[in-house]
Design a protein around this nucleic acid. Structure first.
Length: 645
RNA sequence: GCCGUUGUAGCUCAGUGGUAGAGCACUUCCUUGGUAAGGAAGGGGUCACGAGUUCAACUCUCGUCAAUGGCUCCA
C-alpha cells in the first residue's frame, strides 16, 4: 500500500502502482472527468504514471496553471500531428505552451502555409480529437532517438537531442506522429474540445537571426467550446480598446514621420490628461516628502561613462551630440539617475537628512530598435515619473513601504483593482555577477520581502531576475479584460552610489555610502496612459477625463442659456463644452455618446423654465433633471469616492 | 536590426495598365427639432516617396520611408 497525501492534508491509502487517474476516480467522478495531469511530489506527470511510493499528490485541472500548461503543450502536439498529416516532410522545431495558448515552430520546406490554410488544419485537428488518439510516453536511448530523427531528416530535433543526456530522453507518440518531448501530456487528445489557430509568424530557429527562419503557428485551445468563444470575444474587445486606435479617435496623441518614429506627440486632450495624472502624483509625493527637481535633457558623456551606462548601452544608443567649437560630447538623457546623483552630491549630506527623495518627470531618450516600436508602449522618447531615494541601508524597508503606499493610492484612483508584485532577487548560484556587498543584498532582499508581507501585497519571488546592481519589486496590474501589464517599479541600486562616490556622514562621524532606490509608480507616462486607455476602453475616470460634460442645447434659442450654464460649471471647476451645431438633439446625443463624454446636459424650454438641467450619463441614459448644484455634486461625489478611499 | 504583411481624402475603406470613388468628418444653405444619425449643395487626394519598364503607371518591377504581426533587444 502507498499513502497519498492530498493538498488539503488528508492522507489516503491505495494499492502500490495506483495511477493519479484512479486516485481522481476514487475521489469523485467529476474530478476524474476534469483532471488533466497530476503533480506527484512536486513533479508534474501523466495521469497513467503509476505511483510506487508514498507521495504528495495534487490533481491538476484546467483551473491550475500547471494543468493549463499540460493541456496547451499537448495541444501543440495535436497541432503538429495534424500538420504532419497535411504537410508530409514538414520538420518540427519546438512547440511549447505560452502564457495563453501555445505555438509550434515548423520548417515547411518548399511548401507554403498561409492563414487561408487554417480551416483545413483545424478540421484535421478536429478529426484527430474525435478519434481519441492516445498520447503515449516512451523512454528511448540517445542512439535510438538520433536514429529515428536521422531517418526522418529532422535536423532540428537532432540538434536538440544532441544536447540531451542519454537516459533522460523520451518520445511521445500520438497516432502517426512521434515527437521528442520531456512531457508531461494529457492521456489523449479528447479533452481538447476547441482549438483555434491565431496567427502565423516567422521565428528564427532558437531565436538566432543568423539561423533559418521557421514558421511559427500560434494557437489556443480550451476544454470547452464556450471558453474558446469567450476568449475570441476578449480578443475582439482588446482590438476595440487598442490604445493606438483610441488615441487617434479621442485625439490624445499622434506620430509624425517628420518628427520621427517612436517619438510621440501629445495632443491637447492627451496633454491635459497626462498633466492631471502628473499633478495627482506630484501632490501625493509632496505629502510623502519628495522634492521636485528639474534636470536637462542632455548630459555630458562623462556623466554616463561614470555611471556605467555608456559602457553598457552606449554602442546601441543615439549618437552623442557634439559642439562645433569646443569639441564636447553630450548624450541625450537615457536615464535621470546620474543627474539626480549630482543633485545629491551638491552638498555634503548628514545621516540626519536622509532619506532624501528627488522627483522629476524626466523625459528620456533611448534608441529602441525600429522593429520594437509599438504605439505608446514602446517609444524612443518617454517621460518617467522618476524619483530617486537616497537612504541608509536600514531605511530601505520603510522606504519600500512608503513607495508601495503611493502606488496603491494611484492604482486605486484609476480603478486598477487587481494588482500583484514580482520580487526579483539574485541568482543564488551566481552571486559574483552582482555589485554591492553580500550583507547589503541580504538586507535589501529581506526588506523587500518583509515590506510586501506587511502591506499584504501578493508577491511572487523570482530568483535570478534582479538587475546586476540591486533587487527590485515590479508591479503588475490586471486590466478590465484580464490582461496583465507591468507598470510601476521600485529598484535598489548599489552601483551608482559607488560609481559616483556618494556619501553621508553618519552618527559615528564617519563617511558612509547611501543606498539609492529608483522608483516610478506609473513607469512611464506614455506606457501608463496606453495601459489606462486599454483598461478603461477610453472611458476615463471622471477626475481624469479631458471633458466631463457637454451641454446640448435643444435648439439655437437656448444657446445663451447654455453659455451661461457653461460659465457656471466652469466656475465650479468642472470642465466641458457646448455643442452649438444646428443639429437635432438626438444627433448631438449620439455624437456625445460616441465620444464617450461622461455627462450630457440637455438644455431646452423645460430646463429654462424650471431652472434645471436634464442630465444624461454616457452608456447609462437619461438621469432626469436636477439643479446645477445637484449635478456638480454628483460629479464631485464620484470623484471623491475614487480619490479618497 | 531581421523576416512577413500593409500604405488611395481628416477617418474607415472600395477600385482599375488609359491620370480616382463611397460612407463618415468638414464648409455653406435650409431646418429650430426633446434623449443614439433631418435635408440639400459644395470643398478636399502628386493614390507614402524615388527610380525603372511602358505610347501610357495609382496599378507592374526595384529601392527608400512609415505602419503593422512576429523574432532578437529593453539601463
Amino acid at each position: 500500500m502507498v499513502n497519498i497525501t492530498l493538498p488539503d492534508g488528508s492522507v489516503r491509502q491505495y494499492e502500490q502502482g495506483i495511477t493519479p487517474l484512479d486516485v481522481a476516480k476514487s475521489i469523485s467522478e467529476g474530478l476524474a472527468r476534469n483532471v488533466l495531469a497530476a503533480k506527484v511530489n512536486g513533479k508534474v506527470v501523466e495521469l497513467y504514471r503509476p505511483i510506487e511510493q508514498d507521495a504528495a499528490v495534487q490533481l491538476l485541472t484546467w483551473n491550475d496553471e500547471e494543468g493549463k500548461e499540460v493541456f496547451w503543450h499537448t495541444s501543440a502536439h495535436l497541432l503538429a500531428s495534424a500538420i504532419e498529416e497535411l504537410y508530409p516532410g514538414a520538420k518540427f522545431g519546438i512547440g511549447p505552451a505560452i502564457e495563453t495558448g501555445f505555438y509550434y515552430d515548423i520548417d515547411f520546406g518548399e511548401q507554403t502555409v498561409s492563414s487561408d490554410d487554417f480551416p483545413k488544419i483545424e478540421k484535421k485537428i478536429a478529426e484527430l480529437v474525435s478519434a481519441k488518439i492516445p498520447v503515449v510516453r516512451r523512454e528511448v536511448t540517445k542512439a535510438e532517438a538520433l536514429d529515428f530523427f536521422g531517418k526522418k531528416g529532422d535536423e532540428y530535433k537532432l540538434e536538440l537531442i544532441s544536447e540531451l543526456e542519454d537516459g533522460t530522453i523520451s518520445f511521445y507518440e500520438s497516432g502517426k506522429f512521434t515527437d521528442l518531448c520531456r512531457g508531461p501530456h494529457l492521456v489523449d487528445f479528447s479533452p481538447i474540445k476547441a482549438l483555434k489557430i491565431i496567427n502565423l509568424a516567422g521565428a528564427y530557429w532558437r531565436g538566432d537571426e543568423k539561423r533559418k527562419q521557421l514558421t511559427r503557428i500560434y494557437a489556443v485551445s480550451f476544454p470547452k467550446k464556450k471558453e474558446l468563444d469567450e476568449y475570441l470575444v476578449m480578443l475582439e474587445e482588446a482590438k476595440k480598446r487598442d490604445h493606438r486606435k483610441l488615441g487617434k479617435e479621442l485625439e490624445l496623441f499622434m506620430f509624425s514621420e517628420m518628427v520621427g518614429k517612436g517619438l510621440p506627440i501629445w495632443l491637447p486632450k492627451g496633454t491635459e490628461l497626462r498633466l492631471r495624472l502628473q499633478n495627482f502624483l506630484t501632490k501625493i509625493q509632496k505629502q510623502y516628502g519628495y522634492q521636485q527637481v528639474i534636470t536637462p535633457h542632455i548630459g555630458g558623456k562623462q556623466l554616463y561613462v561614470t555611471s556605467g551606462h555608456w559602457d553598457h548601452y552606449g554602442a546601441d544608443s543615439f549618437r552623442p551630440i557634439t559642439t562645433p567649437e569646443e569639441g564636447e560630447e553630450y548624450l541625450l538623457k537615457p536615464m535621470n539617475c546620474p543627474h539626480h546623483c549630482m543633485v545629491y552630491k551638491d552638498s555634503p549630506r548628514s545621516y540626519k537628512e536622509l532619506p532624501l527623495r528627488f522627483a522629476e518627470f524626466g523625459t528620456v531618450y533611448r534608441y529602441e530598435q525600429s522593429g520594437e516600436l509599438h504605439g505608446l508602449t514602446r517609444v524612443r522618447s518617454f517621460t518617467q515619473d522618476d524619483a530617486h531615494i537616497f537612504c541608509r541601508p536600514d531605511q530601505v524597508k520603510q522606504e519600500f513601504i512608503r513607495v508601495m503606499e503611493i502606488i496603491e493610492i494611484i492604482f486605486k484612483a484609476l480603478s486598477f483593482e487587481n494588482f500583484e508584485a514580482q520580487i526579483s532577487l539574485r541568482d543564488p548560484n551566481n552571486r559574483e555577477k552582482y555589485v554591492g556587498s553580500d550583507e547589503n543584498w541580504e538586507k535589501a532582499e529581506q526588506a523587500i520581502i518583509e515590506a510586501c508581507k506587511e502591506k499584504n501585497l501578493p508577491a511572487k519571488v523570482e530568483y535570478g531576475e534582479a538587475a546586476f546592481y540591486g533587487p527590485k519589486l515590479d508591479f503588475m496590474v490586471k486590466d478590465a479584460i484580464g490582461r496583465r501589464w507591468q507598470l510601476g517599479t521600485i529598484q535598489v541600486d548599489y552601483n551608482l552610489p559607488e560609481r559616483f562616490d556618494l556619501e553621508y556622514i553618519g552618527s559615528d562621524n564617519q563617511k558612509h555610502r547611501p543606498v539609492m532606490i529608483h522608483r516610478a509608480p506609473f513607469g512611464s507616462m506614455e506606457r501608463f496612459v496606453a495601459v489606462l486607455i486599454e483598461h478603461t476602453g477610453g472611458k476615463f475616470p471622471l477626475w481624469l477625463t479631458p471633458e466631463q460634460f457637454v451641454i446640448l442645447p435643444v435648439s439655437e434659442k437656448f444657446e445663451d442659456k447654455a453659455k451661461e450654464l457653461l460659465n457656471t460649471l466652469d466656475n465650479m471647476e468642472l470642465r466641458g463644452s457646448i455643442d452649438l451645431r444646428s443639429e437635432k438633439i438626438g444627433r448631438k446625443i449620439r455624437d456625445a455618446e460616441l465620444k464617450k463624454t461622461p455627462f450630457m446636459l440637455i438644455v431646452g424650454e423645460k430646463e429654462v423654465n424650471e431652472g434645471t438641467v436634464s442630465v444624461r450619463r454616457h452608456g447609462v441614459g437619461d438621469l432626469g433633471s436636477m439643479s446645477v448644484e445637484q449635478f456638480a455634486k454628483t460629479i464631485n461625489d464620484e470623484i471623491k469616492n475614487l480619490l479618497e478611499r
